[in-house]
């Protein structure tokens, strides 16, 4: 299915969990979304491979990582957040606000309906 597509450069990120066939594997859907967004931004030239690898490594080598490595994508998301704020695409406070807004929207959304940011009652 996807066997003939070239693996994205980002699939070569340090420590990325891989299947025996060499594909990235994700424990939860949000991890795949974070990976996909990073792939797109890199493809569009928003940042270079070396910029990404440096920021990701910085997050991965922070003290306090979980011994089983299950926080790998937490680090990935922290690295992506860091990079987009360093590039002045957004600010840490805007990201925090939107994060809380999405959480309020989720709780406010009735079962069976799509969760939309507009559903946040505080917006």
């Amino acid at each position: 299915m996807n066997a003939h597509e070239p693996a994205p450069r980002l699939a070569g990120s340090p420590g990325l969990p891989k299947s025996p066939e060499g594909d990235p594997v994700f424990a939860e859907p949000w991890q795949a979304e974070a990976f996909a967004m990073t792939v797109r931004l890199h493809e569009k030239g928003v940042f270079s491979w070396s910029e990404w690898a440096e920021v990701l490594s910085r997050e991965l080598y922070r003290p306090g990582r979980r011994a089983d490595g299950s926080d790998y994508f937490d680090c990935w998301v922290a690295a992506l957040s860091c990079l987009v704020t360093e590039l002045s695409i957004t600010s840490e406070s805007q990201l925090d606000q939107l994060t809380r807004s999405w959480q309020r929207a989720a709780v406010a959304t009735p079962h069976g309906q799509p969760i939309l940011l507009e559903n946040d009652p505080a917006r």
Partner: peptide
């Protein structure tokens, strides 16, 4: 009981997606 709930990481990823979409950087 509210069944819908986003973990911190789920919500953070949605926040990034929102910002990047608004800026026209991702679709």
């Amino acid at each position: 009981h509210h069944d819908n709930h986003f973990s911190d990481m789920q919500a953070r990823v949605k926040a990034l997606e929102t910002v990047l979409t608004q800026k026209g950087l991702i679709d």
